[in-house]
Design a protein around this nucleic acid. Structure first.
Lengths: 336, 336
DNA sequence: ATGAAAGCGCTAACAT
DNA sequence: ATGTTAGCGCTTTCAT
């Protein structure tokens, strides 16, 4: 396949490159006749713009970027999609950048910023730790979505999140109300200042309030995948047959755990109760439907976009807490 | 945040831009001392390369690109990941480009090709229709993975796929062996020359062989999502209470259908049998585990990469058929 | 309404 | 080992 540049197109159409550029960018100052002639050539030869050259030349940023950690997280990609939908109502065009689970969102931000493709950001699923990279982004408008960043120390950082601690507190209350006292908690790394720590604390708050003891080995750190949770659950229940309820920090984990229990001959919720987190589509379609904490994706998306646009207009950084909902499924029941 | 260019770094380190470029690209012809000095400045000021400028300048293609249609398709993204793993054994570096469900993979190819980021391609989940865009890619080495492209008309196009028609044929045989005669088929659009048509034909082959009739309204065209399949199943079973088995063209669809049946008070497999397709992780973790056609992702990945690299070395285009496996789950049983 | 020309940040000859 | 310089393809003044 031939590669044509706008010079080629210009030559073939018998005009100057600047004219071709104008046509390509829909500028008004081109005669209709010239426009047609150029477009004909473009169609004819299958010309495609080189975005590298275009971006290199465009020196002023017009985009905001949504950075999403993880491609397999349906919860986050769902929020991202809704943000894009909201963004259409504002002047600021948005682009979405998916990064791998292990990648550094601040690297991604810096790259986008340096290449002048984006000058403000929404971070979805950020780890929110305190590295030097982060300091560098001081002053660049950004919104942390789904995680409270009020303690981040970033100058122009807002955030939109549920009260994660209150959510697991409420969920654990439910479990306890059903008579459960020997519970396990499945989640991520209990270090630093992120959502998993908050969710862990919330669960502990409830247990403490009810004077129920919780031993360290009742906390299971697991990968946030079906397989990871399945394996962890298999190992865990081999040693902890007496546990009657599990609070998991994601719906995916909950599903993996429920399947593991089934394979060990235990029925949910008859033998063991299991709860999820996020309120993903899958939770409702699983059998049993997973009782979970629904994060209001539409609200989070809308508020995040609004907050970023407001900051772009000179507004101050703010930290917004939105309401979560406990969604009744079929995965919890009274203790045996 | 400041934006630095290599000129800035060069100035600050007291060297020429080409030296900085050499250091950045790990060239050997730089003294250790200079390298350190440059790297210190880079660390210090947080310099990030502008990939637009870099890509613009690099005029020779070294990459092959894997183009994946759809971000939410765990089956395809799984294959893509395995391809990346295989690719490490070959000299050709690979990049992955995810495009939206509705987007045009040939546009993506042309863009990548024009920007000289990729000169050869693996297409995952391609629609394989016959548009002008496709003709343009004649002569560019590409491999269609998971879809047989022997009739594509593209000069240098190979493909790696299972025999989709045989797979649904075998699956339908199973259903019939369990005594099912009133079956429904849930799938995609029955037009053109793609996998869904082949899968549909395979199902029909089996039914015809057994002299079982199939009315047009027993075919349900549905979206490939949990929600889409759920809705379709709800509508379908309202009118077709007598159907005892469903052959679905994806595992996701199967899950949506099973949930819909549960909500209508029907149990799988006691009341209705349901089969899936692809052999995704989810199928095994669902309850009931979904009986499905496993596509050998590792083999497809390996063969696709090998085939592309072979073509790059001057080898001819080939069309490879790999073996599928019928995976026993818990979602089918004898007719009532 | 159209053209000529100066770079955007980088790499790769080609010098030294 | 290091520096100088010519573009890569495009947009955008500034002329005309």
């Amino acid at each position: 396949m031939e590669i044509y540049t706008i010079r080629d197109v210009a030559r073939m159409a018998g005009v100057a490159v600047s004219t071709v550029s104008r046509v390509l960018n829909g500028r008004p100052d081109v005669s209709e006749e010239t426009r047609r002639r150029v477009m004909d050539v473009v169609e004819e030869c299958g010309f495609v713009q080189n975005r590298n050259a275009r971006n290199l030349k465009n020196t002023k940023t017009v985009f905001s970027a949504i950075i999403v950690r993880g491609r397999h997280n349906t919860f986050l990609s769902d929020v991202a999609e809704q943000m894009l939908a909201c963004a259409q109502e504002y002047k600021t065009p948005f682009i979405v950048k998916y990064i791998d689970e292990e990648d550094d969102e601040f690297d991604a931000m810096r790259q986008l910023y340096t290449e002048k493709r984006a000058g403000s950001f929404i971070l979805l699923g950020s780890r929110l730790d305190e590295r030097k990279e982060m300091i560098r982004m001081l002053g660049v408008p950004c919104v942390f979505a789904t995680v409270d960043a009020s303690g981040s120390g970033l100058g122009r950082a807002s955030s939109v999140s549920i009260d994660d601690r209150a959510a697991t507190h409420a969920m654990m209350d439910r479990l306890i109300a059903q008579g459960h006292t020997r519970v396990a908690v499945f989640g991520g790394c209990r270090e630093g200042d992120d959502v998993f720590v908050r969710r862990y604390r919330g669960a502990m708050d409830s247990l403490n309030e009810h004077g129920i003891s919780f031993d360290s080995d009742q906390y299971v750190q697991s990968r946030f995948t079906l397989h990871g949770a399945y394996e962890s659950a298999m190992r865990f229940f081999e040693k902890h047959r007496d546990v009657t309820a599990v609070l998991a920090m994601s719906d995916t984990m909950a599903a993996g755990i429920i399947r593991a229990l089934a394979d060990m001959g235990m029925h949910v919720p008859t033998d063991v109760s299991v709860t999820g987190f996020d309120g993903t589509e899958m939770a409702g379609y699983y059998i049993p439907a997973i009782t979970t904490v629904r994060q209001p994706t539409a609200t989070i998306a809308r508020e995040s976009v609004a907050l970023l646009c407001d900051m772009l207009d000179g507004g101050d950084a703010r930290h917004i807490t939105v309401d979560y909902t406990l969604v009744d499924g079929e995965s919890i029941g009274p203790v045996k």
